[in-house]
Design a protein around this nucleic acid. Sequence first.
DNA 1: AGAAATCATTTGTCAGACATTTAAATGTAT
DNA 2: ATACATTTAAATGTCTGACAAATGATTTCT
Lengths: 246, 246
Amino acid sequence: MKTELDAARDLSAQIAGAIRDAIVAGQLIVDERLPSESELADKFGVSRPTVREALKRLAAQSLIRTQRGASGGAFVNRLRYEEAYGQQITTSTLLLSMNAVSFETACEARYALERACAPLAAQRRSADHLAAMRAEIHRQGQPGLSDESFCASDVAFHRALVDAAENPVLSYHLAGAVEAMQPLMNMITFTARDRTEIIARHGALADALEARDAAAAEAALQALCAYTIRLGRDVAAKRTRRTQEA
Amino acid sequence: MKTELDAARDLSAQIAGAIRDAIVAGQLIVDERLPSESELADKFGVSRPTVREALKRLAAQSLIRTQRGASGGAFVNRLRYEEAYGQQITTSTLLLSMNAVSFETACEARYALERACAPLAAQRRSADHLAAMRAEIHRQGQPGLSDESFCASDVAFHRALVDAAENPVLSYHLAGAVEAMQPLMNMITFTARDRTEIIARHGALADALEARDAAAAEAALQALCAYTIRLGRDVAAKRTRRTQEA
DNA sequence: AGAAATCATTTGTCAGACATTTAAATGTAT
DNA sequence: ATACATTTAAATGTCTGACAAATGATTTCT
């Protein structure tokens, strides 16, 4: 039934797959202890190092955690949003850098996704969310702020927007999209005028949420998207010109 | 600088982290070969099994691939969308099941995200995308279709919608959201009337895309979302009633 | 009874060996 | 000289056995 597919894979990959399937299928529930490495080795007919490699694969995906000592072992891990965020961000970042995704494509995706949050955020935003956004806007206006810090604050601002939608599933999916943009954004040099423009848009967005005006929020995001893509185009154009000169 | 954080982790986790950082930072480029396991063992001052565990961790995240034989070894893997999809879907599915996310929350997130695709899909949809959607609609209308197949077709329909936006980054982020809903959807029993209703909405959505009418597409999605959440509520209500009876 | 010491279990790590795969080098025959 | 077969070397895959370290349970001593 499975030998055709499995034959091509390492034993540790097969074992990891079998255990993962059991977890996904709910045969192993959260916090349940797996058999010890020796027992697993016997069960699968392999040596302990092979079992360990399989377990490390699962640990890398946060599917299990291990504990040493008596009554230790490998336990099915409750996948928390915070852990999933990290992996999601790493994967998204690498996807962008390794596949030479254009700034425009990534930017379009990011703002499209944020736009999805706008109506919910307008409806549910708390005073805390608004305060967080205003704080970042203030930060972005401070003189002497490095481009990198400006980008970091931009990310924090947008994450506050996403969190304002009060939907953890949405926050999870957007974490990657928002954070993965940061390396791309860091390639942009923001002039004082650029910053003023962006800060104004952020202000408009915060105002819209405060007024619970979904349409205005979407419009602000749309404008922000267009402006950011324009900035990206300028950078690309400058680089092309420089390359041609050289 | 790092010893405080590293001290708590296994050697294999530290080594995997070091290599991962090098990949993310671009110090190791795609298709570049890592030193052999023996060389890595020397370099990090650990044994080969420990290095292997570290490499398996990275392999589990598709960051590297290994090849046997002469001139084999571990190579930095180009993270492809297809591979990333799979991990994304597994993670999303587990996040939903392990954190007892309500059907409503997941559904809301999914449709909010799809709504983000609607304007782009309306603008860029090709004849192929439309054909794929129509085909799934036709499939959904066939008598004798199991609930499971109906759900699978629903997923295929929505993925066609997402792909119609012609933005791979968007497709990637939505893959998890759409696919992870399937197990939750499978818990619903669709009556003939439910199906008729859903198929009508799907038809309206396809019509809107064909007419390149973004607003109509968003409206259709909104309606579909509301209807699906209602179905979920009914199921939950029935289950509660049954539990109380018992 | 309470604290200390011991024990048993389990993961973490190491060393060395052999099996298997694969590409390159070598040799051979046409 | 080219084409094919053979050998070789390098690398990963796997196994065995061992010891270290952590940790909860047990026993012992006060």
